[in-house]
Every structure is written in C-alpha cells, then in structure tokens.
Amino acid sequence: MELLIFGDKGWGDELFYATLMTISVAITAFLIGFFFAFIFVPVKLSKNKILKFIGNTYTTVFRGVPELLIIYLFFFGGSGAVMYVAKIFGYNEYIEINAFLTGALSIGLISGAYSTEVFRGAILSIGSGQFEGAKSLGLKKITYFIYVILPQVLRLAIPNLGNVWQITLKDTALISVTGLVEIMRQSYIAAGSTRNPLFFYIFAAVIYLILTTFSLKFFNKLERKYNFS
C-alpha cells in the first residue's frame, strides 16, 4: 500500500492523473465516434451504390482490423501525413503530433464504426409508419428527422451504445503503446521503476473494473429513464 501514497514517495497521484487521462481520451474518442457515425449512417443508408460501398468499407475495415494495427498506422503515419501537408505550404521542419490526438482519433474511428452500426440498426428498427406519418403531416425532412426520428433512435440505441462505450474505454489501454501516459502506461512505468509489476497491473485492472462497472450502472439508469414503452 505504501506504493500508492500521494506525492513523491508513492504512485498514487500519478495513477490518479493517469485515470483522468484514460477517462478523457475515452470520452473524446467516443464523441469522435459519434461524429463519424453521423456522417456514415446516412452514407450507409443511402440508395446510391457507391456511397453504400464507402460506408460498408468503413465499418468493415475498422471493425475487422485489429485496434493495435490502426493505432500503429496513425502513430507512425500521422506525423508523416501532417508533414506532407505542411510541406505543400512550405514548412519543412519535423512535426510530431500529439499522442492524445493520435490515440483519440484512432480509437474514435473504431468507436465510430461500431456506433454507425448501432444507429443504423436503431433507424431500421423504427417502423416505416413513423416516416410516413411525419411525411403526411407535411413536415420538412430536417424537422421530422430531428423531432420524430432522432429521439426514438437515441432511445433504442442506448443499450448498444453502452456496449460501444465499454469497448472504447477498454481500447484506450492500447494507446499506451504510443507513450500517452494513461493507466496502462503509468502502471508500466511504475512497475519498471519499483520492480513490482504484479501489484501495479492488478491495481490497473481494478481501476478499469471500477470504471466499467460505474459506466454500466450509468447506462442502465439511462436506459430505464428513457424506456417509456
């Protein structure tokens, strides 16, 4: 327990900040995932074959390729891509992109692929009567989407979004390979300098367990609150 003292003697405060880092990366990635879902759900549902193909490629690739490989792509390829763009504008120095952004973006893309499927499923499960009813009332497309479809979709999507959140939260552990100091990375550092890996990795597991348990409770509450039917 001495190892967990706050301050210079223990790793308590470091692990606390690392936990905050994990939570913020996970939330950022989850929101980035929402952003991609809002782009790719209409793309996947569109009748245009090319758009449909693009949407399907996105969800297949980001759900079928290991997370670690995607993180390596962004970690090694990210700064290269930014430097390439910078070169066009005449900037030739080495640019290193932020590990937080790389991590959040790569996990966010994966999270987005799962969210896309969740929202698509929810939209498809709404009866066509809702769409027809809204149309026959003469509502504009945007109005009926925001006031009729969206609230129902969100309600139906809550349980599965809870799963996507859990996946996203657990995937953030993989960002540690890029050197971002979140729970896993901090435990790795602490384990290395104290030669006590068993203690620190079990402690990290406990932190993750607490985070996943609380988020499960939160999503269950949300589900109960919006379950009118």
Binding site: K170, A173, M184, S187, Y188, I202, Y208
Partner: peptide, 19 residues
C-alpha cells in the same frame, strides 16, 4: 470482461514472473 485484455496479458506475463 470488465478489464482490457492488455492488462490481463501483462499480469500473466510480467506480473506472475515476479512471484
């Protein structure tokens, strides 16, 4: 199911070797 696979792997690979 509540912890990342990476943590489980590290506990078994790095952690158990300590005992």
């Amino acid at each position: 199911r509540g912890t990342p696979l990476l943590v489980q792997l590290f506990i078994i690979y790095f952690g158990l070797a300590q005992l």
